[in-house]
């Protein structure tokens, strides 16, 4: 800019500026390139594969709807996997909201100086790979494992036989995704000013009324972000059902994995993945649109 200004008398500089790339765009270029290569390109490839000839690698060279015909064929039970995935993801989000709210409330209002330490304890498991942690739970619950073995050693009847059941899958999902619900929720609750709670109480409101009228609506942005995050993650979960559930239930993500690996049917796997993306993002957007965030945030 400086030398343009210096050479300006006589020279026509104004039109040249029209073609100059703005500083913001120039700074964003590395990120844009990275996103194009790392995010958009794979997504486009997957979308293209979804329309390729089944059991082939003829991506970008064929166009057919055969993969979707296979999926929507009622004789095929793949819809069950979709249903399980959505059902488990929804249940996980619901349970997480119930489990995380008291903890988040404690972190913001009750634990005081211990909040930092307790937060770290909740983050700690994230340092260990999810698969390793899940296999840890398998060893804990397995027949003659940590729980069962210890109880038997103590002369008791032994642990419950809950491994490889839908219940343990749900437990695993709640366990793995807890931090992703807890921290947005904590932030949301921390956004509720103490004065407002005091004022509501001073104006005669009881505990329930304060919670319903003040705390919950003002913490809602954080709670919603937590729910959205965990729903998307849980709908894409595969390890919990495979490791803890021992394939008692086949999730859609597991079906996709099988299509890409054992059956070497990339086009079918891609079609399933595209469908899952549409369903999950559609559901999320629908729920978000139903909740008037602006009203909740008071920006109406």
């Amino acid at each position: 800019m400086a030398d343009i200004a210096l050479s300006s008398p006589g020279t026509i500089t104004a039109p040249r500026r029209h073609f100059a790339i703005p500083a913001g765009l120039r700074c964003a270029t590395p990120v844009i390139i990275f996103l194009l290569l790392g995010f958009v390109a794979p997504l486009v490839t997957v979308a293209a594969y979804a329309f390729a000839t089944p059991r082939s690698f003829a991506v970008f060279r064929s166009f057919t709807l055969e993969n979707f015909v296979t999926i929507f064929n009622p004789a095929n039970s793949v819809w069950l996997s979709f249903a399980w995935s959505i059902f488990f993801a929804s249940l996980t989000v619901l349970l997480l909201a119930l489990v995380a709210y008291p903890i988040a409330y404690g972190l913001v209002r009750v634990f005081g100086k211990w909040s930092g330490l307790i937060s770290v304890l909740f983050v700690f498991p994230l340092f260990v790979s999810e698969n390793v942690r899940l296999y840890g739970w398998v060893l804990f619950f397995i027949k003659n494992g940590v729980l069962d073995g210890t109880l038997k050693l103590a002369g008791l009847v032994g642990g419950p036989d809950i491994l490889f059941t839908p219940g343990i899958i749900l437990f695993g999902m709640v366990y793995v995704y807890l931090p992703f619900m807890l921290f947005p929720m904590t932030l949301g609750l921390a956004m509720v000013p103490r004065d407002l709670v005091d004022a509501a109480s001073d104006l005669g409101a009881g505990r329930m009324m304060i919670w319903r009228e003040i705390e919950l609506p003002l913490a809602m942005p954080g709670i919603l972000i937590g729910m959205l995050l965990t729903f998307v993650l849980a709908a894409g979960a595969v390890a919990e059902a495979k490791v803890l559930g021992g394939q008692a239930i086949i999730m859609i993500t597991h079906d996709i994995e099988i299509a890409f690996t054992y059956s070497q049917n990339w086009p079918l796997g891609s079609a399933l993945a595209v469908l899952l993306m549409i369903i999950v993002s559609g559901l999320s957007l629908f729920v978000m649109s139903k909740l008037d965030l602006d009203r909740i945030l008071g920006k109406r």
């Binding site: 000013p193 407002l196 005091d198 004022a199 109480s201 001073d202 409101a205 008071g298």
Partner: peptide, 21 residues
């Protein structure tokens, strides 16, 4: 006697108006 059962009402320095209402 807790605040919600007292015949007093406090106008806060921050005013403590409910922003979502």
């Amino acid at each position: 006697l807790p605040a919600n059962r007292r015949p007093t009402c406090l106008v806060f320095q921050s005013l403590a108006l409910f922003p979502h209402r």
